[in-house]
Nucleic acid binder design. Structure first.
Lengths: 165, 165
DNA sequence: TGCCATCTTATGGGATATCATGGAATTTTA
DNA sequence: TAAAATTCCATGATATCCCATAAGATGGCA
């Protein structure tokens, strides 16, 4: 089975910026790092320049490579490519779990998304997100209400079954 | 034969949150997990963020993968995709039966649907649901009365045979 | 068809491992 | 050399594993 990032969990951020990454996510990060071997700690990538910018996004090495490959397909000096490279390559950083499964969020990263002493991890399939808990709740509420306002044929759940497979 | 989730049954939830999954459902979960082999225990997925949110929904690995695959076809950063990932991926979790056929419902999951020391399992074809027994009864009653108020041409039983295949 | 042996199921309890988290000690680096 | 970052150790809480048992269900077989 290819595991995906699933579920939510809330973790403490200590004075040094250390946070535990949810154990379930570690398994996915390990599987997604071609250089990982039992005993070592997986590498992965955090993108902080995200489309919406209100959370951090974690990618396995394999899934960020996929994104990189897509970007490389764009014309070399196009505005689009320039922009994506800026957001995804420039505004990102390699990370490595320590042996207790934690990472440290630098002052800069915490500031980016307004994190204090708690961080909310949210699984999103091929990536995961890190949110300041209140902002996350707002995001969920906003999502809920915008979902309620959708007409029948805008409902993404219903659109799903119309896709070919 | 492709087995489907059928029937209802009521099970005790012990102090640790452990519940037996109905034996009939285990067979379906086993068939629906490509990595299952006799001797091992099947994995599956519980979604708790359902559109209605009053029960948990269990999916086999195969059926949730179908959904994942459809979602992956949507453009990577589209609003639709984010919404679906949020409702289906974020609000879900991997589960594995133990060798006596039980799962453990975390405090969080029990809270979500108001479960105390009993859980009602309901087969729904491609998925099953877990309800707090009283809520389940209310749901049944509500369904009954709304069914009685339908006109002839709204009756879903009658609409069934009009579908093309 | 009545009875016994066996298997499966549902459930419980205790032991063990993993996880999340904190603090101290040590190294790096500016 | 002080501040920042990293490594190492410690611990309570939670989750997982392992074993136990009683009640049904199943299946032969006389």
């Amino acid at each position: 089975m290819i595991r995906r990032f699933r579920g939510e969990s809330l973790h403490k951020v200590d004075a040094k910026g250390r946070v535990s990454v949810p154990a379930a996510f570690r398994r996915v990060l390990e599987e997604g790092d071609p250089d990982f071997s039992t005993g070592s700690s997986p590498n992965f990538v955090i993108v902080y320049g995200g489309v919406r910018g209100s959370c951090l996004e974690g990618y396995t090495i394999n899934s960020i490579s996929k994104v990189d490959k897509l970007i490389s397909k764009l014309p070399r000096f196009s505005k689009d490519r320039e922009m994506l490279e800026r957001f995804i390559n420039t505004q990102s950083t390699y990370m490595q779990l320590d042996e207790t499964g934690r990472i440290v969020l630098s002052h800069r990263l915490k500031e980016k998304i307004g994190i204090g002493d708690e961080a909310l991890f949210a699984g999103m399939g091929e990536k995961f997100q890190i949110w300041e808990p209140k902002n996350y709740q707002n995001e969920l509420n906003a999502l809920d209400s915008s979902f309620k306002n959708l007409s029948e044929d805008e409902n993404p759940f219903l659109k799903l079954d119309q896709l070919q497979d």
